[in-house]
Nucleic acid binder design. Sequence first.
DNA 1: TGTATGACGATAT
DNA 2: CATATCGCCATAC
Length: 238
Amino acid sequence: MRLVSTAELKNRTNEVLRTAQAGEPIIITRHGRPVASLMGLAGGDLAGLPDRAAAARAPSGGYAYSAFVLPFGTFYVAFGPLGPAFARIAASPGAFERDAARYLGTLVRRSAPPGWLARAVREAVGARRVFGGPVDLSRAGPFEREVLAALRRIPAGQVRTYGEIARAVGQPGAARAVGTACARNPVPLLVPCHRVVRSDGGLGGYSLIGGVGLKRRLLESEGALPNPPRPQEAGRAR
DNA sequence: TGTATGACGATAT
DNA sequence: CATATCGCCATAC
């Protein structure tokens, strides 16, 4: 990972882009604070994406989706010109297609996973890096978008409370609404809503298939839980 | 425009 | 410590 200031970005654009293309994640900083990231794209990565002309011709048509078999289920991701737009763990392609069509307002067709998407899923699930790639949040409201943006700033291995996110987006009293926004996250895992927990130490909810059990599993695999449950000693006191 | 609904939080019991 | 209650706030209808 490399940190690049706005000045560097402007004055050494080509070098920065070359670095990104080489596969090293670039974090853009402003006033010393990370504000955005660049993800390299290899040739052919965009093969599954509709081109600009196609998008203009059919503004609401043309989402593709790919399936990824993960340890806890099959993860489906629908993507358009702006990036991943809808993702779910689903029991079958048909179930995902139905949910995706309802959310996106258009049919989705299956496609081989573009390289950038496979990498994004790998990074998001393996939690080896923060997935900072593009995400299509155009159907989310302004508050929801801010919340989701805040979630993306939570490093793997860490958690935040719903209240902390509320304060982070300037609505200190909106913890509950943050929960609602998380529940409506169109791209779970890619936007890590599982890293938000309750202020009382509870995990809170998780609406993906798998429920809080999956949420716990994800957080454990990221090393975010201080005391992984040890079944053998569960309940034992002193 | 009003009303109902949550992946919440603090407090009381 | 678990449950109940009430306040909160952005959405969906």
